[in-house]
């Protein structure tokens, strides 16, 4: 699995992804780890099929006992179905995740890790000298959903927001925003159900100082592309149920 430092100053942000050993048929995902003086914090640790690659990659940077916190933006399997294995590996860690998914996420196996419920309005977490914010991103796409904002590094880990569906091995950062739109348009229109929630999120994020917007699939946005993304997303109609496509009376017979 490829590991790249996207911020390396007072603390570090490492992005993991573009795994060449990934089994076929599963969507490519970006995982992130933040390393402060005494802690390591894994954001959206990924699916069960990625666990061994993730564990080996993480150990290049930190020993196991430094990993104290995990974060799950929402309940999807590509986000956190590896939980049962992390639970065996890091029995003393804490999982920060939306309150409303606790009873669901625990189905992945959570006997040892302490589940810390994130309230709807958001929360903060201080690890050494860095204070992180859990920014509400409900209905984008999950009805209980958070982003993680690091005001020092000016990075917003945006979960599924900003995600794109593209070929394995794509570059790390968006290099041509106009071309990139075609790779993310369908994803946002189909996966995101609410224009109201989307606009509230855009307004919330515009107030933050963001240099890197780091989604869970596809490329990251940096500098002016962050603003371009917010403008594009704001003007996009999402949650469309098109007559004749999703609402057709005609049923397809499966075998």
């Amino acid at each position: 699995m490829k590991a790249t430092a996207i911020y390396d100053k007072s603390h570090r942000w490492i992005m993991f992804g573009r795994d060449p050993d990934k089994v076929g048929g599963i969507i490519d995902t970006n995982q992130y780890m933040i390393i402060t003086r005494n802690h390591a914090f894994i954001l959206d640790p990924g699916g069960i099929e990625l666990f061994s690659s993730m564990l080996a990659s993480i150990l290049h940077f930190v020993p196991l006992d430094k990993i104290t916190h995990l974060f799950a933006s929402h309940q999807d399997p590509d986000i956190i179905s590896s939980l049962g294995l992390w639970d065996q590996t890091l029995p003393n860690a804490k999982l920060m995740a939306p309150w409303m998914w606790e009873g669901f996420i625990r189905h992945f196996g959570c006997e040892n890790i302490h589940y810390v419920s994130l309230p709807d309005q958001g929360a903060t977490l201080r690890l050494d000298e860095v204070e992180f914010e859990f920014v509400p991103a409900h209905y984008l796409h999950s009805s209980g959903n958070f982003n993680v904002y690091d005001p020092q590094a000016r990075i917003l880990m945006s979960g599924d927001i900003g995600s794109a569906l593209e070929k394995d091995g794509s570059p790390l950062f968006v290099d041509n925003f106009k071309e990139h739109v075609s790779k993310m348009q369908l994803f946002h229109q189909r996966w995101m159900p609410s224009n109201t929630a989307k606009n509230a999120w855009v307004e919330r994020v515009r107030k933050l100082d963001v240099d890197i917007l780091a989604p869970q699939h596809g490329r990251l946005f940096q500098g002016d592309d962050v603003k371009r993304f917010l403008d594009w997303f704001e003007s996009l109609e999402v949650g469309l149920a098109k007559e004749g496509e999703y609402m057709s009376e005609k049923k397809i017979e499966l075998t």
């Binding site: 061994s52 564990l55 150990l59 196991l64 065996q88 040892n112």
Partner: peptide
């Protein structure tokens, strides 16, 4: 749970 003093085989390998 895995005991970090006596870790599982997959952890040792990683």
């Amino acid at each position: 749970a895995a005991d970090l003093e006596n870790p599982d085989f997959y952890v040792v390998a990683a």
